[in-house]
């Protein structure tokens, strides 16, 4: 194949140039072998081993690579690194902020729970006292009403007793008058008041 033969032909040339790169005599020798090749195969020296191009390649490599290196060191690496660091910081900061907010939220929940519990116990106390107050007021009211009622009952009983005794007191006179009238009608004679009184007293049940 062409490639292998080309490579084989240039291989000794390569070692030759490798031994003394950049040296003027080697370059001359090299060019001569190159010319010989050209004569035999109508091709130039294998280009990567053509030492006559080395100074120019080296110079331009140093210039371009050096420039690239400087650009990297001064501009590009700080630039990309800065962006990455900034993002890193931002993420760390956001995480801190998030954990801070979470702690705040937790604290808020805790205080809320505490206040809720407090309010609940306070409400219990208020309910308890209100119930107690209502109960005692009801008790006193009832007691007052009961005493009042008892009083009214007592006065009413006293009045009934009074009226009863009055009525009983009048029962004697009414009986006497009625007895005198009945006697007068029956026998047509007037019975003495004293007799009638005695008779009634005898017939009516003894009062205790």
């Amino acid at each position: 194949m062409f490639v292998t033969s080309a490579f084989a032909q240039t291989a000794p040339e390569a070692t030759e140039t490798h031994e003394a790169p950049g040296a003027a005599p080697a370059g001359v020798v090299h060019t001569e072998t190159g010319v010989a090749h050209e004569g035999a195969h109508a091709t130039g020296p294998f280009p990567p081993f053509d030492a006559s191009t080395y100074p120019s390649q080296l110079l331009w490599l140093v210039i371009t690579f050096g420039l690239f290196y400087l650009l990297m060191q001064k501009v590009l690496v700080p630039r990309v690194g800065g962006i990455l660091e900034q993002r890193h910081d931002r993420i760390a900061q956001d995480l801190d902020e998030a954990s801070r907010l979470k702690a705040e939220a937790d604290a808020a929940v805790e205080t809320y729970e505490k206040e809720l519990a407090e309010a609940r116990s306070k409400a219990n106390v208020i309910g308890e006292t209100a119930r107690e107050a209502a109960k005692s007021k009801a008790a006193t009211d009832r007691a007052a009403i009961e005493t009042e009622l008892a009083q009214k009952l007592a006065t009413a009983e006293a009045r009934i007793g009074e009226i009863k005794s009055q009525a009983f007191a009048q029962v004697g006179t009414i009986a006497e008058e009625t007895a005198a009238a009945i006697v007068d009608q029956l026998i047509g004679a007037k019975a003495s008041a004293d007799d009638i009184k005695a008779a009634i007293a005898a017939s009516s049940p003894k009062e205790a």
Partner: peptide, 17 residues
């Protein structure tokens, strides 16, 4: 006496950078 020409290799070094 040294050849420091700007060649196609140099051009592509510049292009690479």
């Amino acid at each position: 006496g040294m050849d420091f020409s700007f060649t196609n290799a140099s051009l592509f070094m510049v292009a690479t950078v």
